[in-house]
């Protein structure tokens, strides 16, 4: 094909600069200025006051990511050994809840986790002590695991399914026990899927504010809540909000860079 057609991408380049690059630059600009438009680093100094929120956000996102991995990896492994038809059905069933809006999925957990909710009704029916979960960090972590588990299972499952059967058989023929084959062959080969699973869970988990609003009852404020408050809440302060957003962006970039470093290649991960 002739190389002239490149001009067709020109309107797109303009659009992306106007609505992606300029907005990002504005975030940087706002983060480095005050109300009078004067340059300052005061917004970043104020971030120290919110250290607890940063800690809670990163901690909860990390815990949820680990739980997703601990549940999601074994599930993906078990599913990879099923027949094609069974596995495709399972993938469809895992994706189906993702088609429901995250607000509704999270809202459903409210009525389950409430103090007089369905979970505690079930527990008292079984003569077990009631659990106080709603409006605690545990409820927020549970909401994150529920909403983002598919993002862990699907990339891992895609990668494990692609592993050539003959590689596994060769390892077995060479005398590897089941555990050895798993540890020395399947686990290393599935690492790219695990790494993209980790980023795909961690990034939305560290930036959410819906889950903490609905299940955390305003008590466990996260970074997302903090940003939302600065832009749409009573404490309108886009300068501080931009500084928080900038730090969040850096966190996301660092976590993605780390994951990319460990696992090269493997771009098509979303089993869509």
């Amino acid at each position: 094909m002739k190389r002239r057609g490149g001009l067709l991408a020109f309107p797109y380049a303009v659009w992306m600069i106007l609505f992606t690059v300029v907005p990002m630059l504005l975030v940087v600009w706002f983060a480095l200025t005050d109300e009078d438009g004067l340059p300052t680093v005061g917004n970043f100094i104020r971030l120290w006051d919110y250290g607890a929120v940063f800690g809670r956000s990163l901690g909860l996102a990390a815990v949820s990511t680990v739980i997703c991995l601990l549940i999601g990896y074994p599930l993906a492994y078990v599913l990879s050994r099923e027949t094609d038809a069974m596995r495709n059905t399972a993938m469809l069933l895992i994706m189906l809840p993702m088609w429901i809006n995250i607000l509704l999925r999270t809202y459903a957990w409210m009525s389950i986790l409430e103090n007089s909710g369905l979970l505690n009704q079930l527990l008292s029916f079984l003569r077990l002590p009631a659990l106080h979960i709603i409006n605690t960090p545990s409820a927020v972590a549970l909401g994150m695991v529920y909403n983002y588990l598919p993002f862990m299972v699907l990339p891992v499952l895609t990668v494990i399914t692609k592993i050539d059967d003959s590689v596994v058989e060769a390892a077995q023929d060479l005398g590897g026990s089941q555990a050895t084959v798993f540890r020395r062959v399947i686990l290393p080969l599935s690492l790219p899927g695990v790494l993209s699973g980790i980023t795909m869970v961690f990034v939305p988990a560290v930036s959410t504010f819906i889950i903490s609003k609905l299940l955390g009852g305003g008590k466990s404020m996260l970074l997302g809540d903090l940003i939302e408050m600065q832009f749409l809440g009573n404490t309108y302060n886009p300068y501080l909000g931009s500084a928080i957003s900038l730090v969040m962006m850096v966190i996301v970039l660092i976590s993605m860079a780390l994951m990319n470093r460990f696992g090269e290649g493997e771009e098509e991960v979303m089993g869509l």
Binding site: V21, P23, L26, V203, S245
Partner: peptide
């Protein structure tokens, strides 16, 4: 690479940055 920015950026940051513009 530019194309990937809205895909990998957390939605909340895409949201607030567009709001500023």
């Amino acid at each position: 690479a530019l194309n990937n920015i809205p895909v990998v950026n957390p939605d909340i940051i895409t949201g607030v940055s567009l709001m500023l513009v």
